[in-house]
Amino acid sequence: MPHNTYTLITGASSGLGKEFAIQCARKGHNIILIALPGGNLQSIAHNLELEYQVSVKVFEFDLSNSEILKSRLSVITAQYAIDFLINNAGVGGTSSITDTSLERIDDIIMLNVRSTVLLTHLLIPHLLRHKQSYIMNIASMAAFTPIAYKTVYPASKAFISSFFLGLKEELASTGLSVSVIYPGPIMTNSHTSRRIISQGLKGKMGLLPTPEIARIALKGTLAGYPVIIPGLMNKINHALMQLLPLSLKMKIVSREVKKEIPFALSV
């Protein structure tokens, strides 16, 4: 990538987003990090600049606020040439639908769906200015199956999958390549770790270290692959689940997910 362009990463203060920032910096990419305030982004940026000698810019705001998003993105695109967008920010949770607040449902839809589409739509004209550019989108293995006790989250990830694969086809004649990543379980913090462990061996099947997921996702995206499922076990699991009737598949997955409820945060 040209040295004067930037990779924009959302949800960059922790977990997979932070790892994308590290690995992109290691590859020599200049980076724009976006996350909510209070995520220690300035410290992350400072360390990346010192270690990898790249330019790292920080913007802290709520992506789900569309007016702020449009305003901040206007400032960003006026100053920096972006040739790689990594849509990583997202939120989920586990609870029965009757125990899930309307605010939590709205949070998931606004961040996972609305802000992701809006951000992408606003950036596409800027990405198309480059001979070669990329969009990476983090979906989930949950996108492949409706799941009880999560309901809204897998639906949002199924939307991401459908929207961006359709966009991939629409942009096929351009230099803008679109990829969708379908990670399995990720132990990004103590909360998600407890939920994964609660499912026992089945919950840990397909579990990969966060750096490895980021490495596979970046390699596949830069190679132009539209669909990327990190990890052999996740690929095998996806292939096997495709053979099952939908009703049976939903029962199997939902039964395991239900075990997470005692370990879920208040929603």
Rank of each mutant, 00 (worst) to 15 (best):
G39S: 06
G39Q: 10
N40T: 01
N40C: 02
Q42L: 07
Q42W: 01
Q42G: 12
Q42P: 00
I44E: 04
N47F: 04
N47L: 08
L48I: 09
L48F: 06
L48M: 08
E49T: 13
E49I: 10
E49P: 01
E49K: 14
E49D: 04
E49A: 13
L50H: 06
L50R: 14
E51A: 11
E51K: 15
E51V: 04
Y52L: 03
Y52T: 04
Y52F: 14
V54H: 01
V54W: 00
S55P: 02
V56F: 04
V58K: 08
F59C: 03
F59S: 05
E60Q: 12
F61Y: 12
D62A: 12
D62Q: 13
L63H: 05
S64K: 14
S64L: 08
S64Q: 13
N65F: 10
S66W: 02
S66E: 14
S66G: 04
E67H: 08
K70P: 03
K70T: 13
S71R: 15
R72I: 08
L73C: 09
L73V: 11
S74D: 14
S74C: 11
S74G: 13
S74N: 15
S74M: 10
V75M: 08
I76N: 07
A78I: 05
Q79N: 15
Q79P: 01
Y80C: 05
A81K: 12
A81Q: 13
I82E: 00
D83L: 08
F84W: 10
F84H: 09
F84K: 05
L85P: 00
L85K: 03
N88R: 09
A89W: 09
V91D: 07
V91H: 01
G92T: 06
G93N: 06
T94D: 05
T94A: 12
S95V: 00
S96P: 00
S96L: 10
I97V: 13
I97M: 09
D99S: 08
T100V: 09
T100N: 06
T100G: 07
T100P: 03
T100W: 09
S101N: 07
S101G: 14
S101E: 11
L102I: 12
L102Y: 05
L102C: 07
L102G: 07
E103Q: 13
R104K: 15
R104M: 10
D107P: 01
D107C: 04
I108A: 00
I109L: 11
I109D: 03
I109M: 11
L111P: 02
N112R: 10
N112P: 05
V113M: 14
V113D: 07
R114Y: 08
R114V: 15
S115R: 02
S115W: 02
S115N: 02
T116K: 10
T116M: 14
T116Q: 15
T116I: 06
